[in-house]
């Protein structure tokens, strides 16, 4: 059961990061990247590393999103 859950999460992380690379609108790319980081945090939690999961969720979905949105705001939105 946990194995199926983890497989789905791994595929989900792969798809999220692939979409984040391929999409042309950089703001959408950042949001999808945050979603992928959240899924990665869940994977860390399933792998019994709650310490890393907390850090990944806080940094990946919180702070890096703000910094990247700020960077897009200062430059161009379209790729």
């Amino acid at each position: 059961m946990e194995s199926i859950f983890l497989n789905i999460l791994l595929v989900l992380v792969f798809l999220f990061y692939l979409i984040a690379v391929k999409v042309k609108d950089l703001l959408y790319a950042i949001i999808i990247l945050a979603a992928g980081n959240t899924a990665l945090a869940v994977i860390f939690y399933v792998l019994q590393a709650p310490d890393i999961a907390l850090t990944q969720a806080a940094v990946g979905a919180g702070v890096s999103t703000v910094l990247l949105v700020n960077a897009v705001n200062k430059t161009r939105r379209k790729e």
Binding site: D51, T55, A58, V63
Partner: peptide, 11 residues
């Protein structure tokens, strides 16, 4: 508990 200085500070 899990956590520590770095995640707490980031939160």
């Amino acid at each position: 508990t899990p956590g520590g200085g770095f995640p707490g500070g980031v939160i």
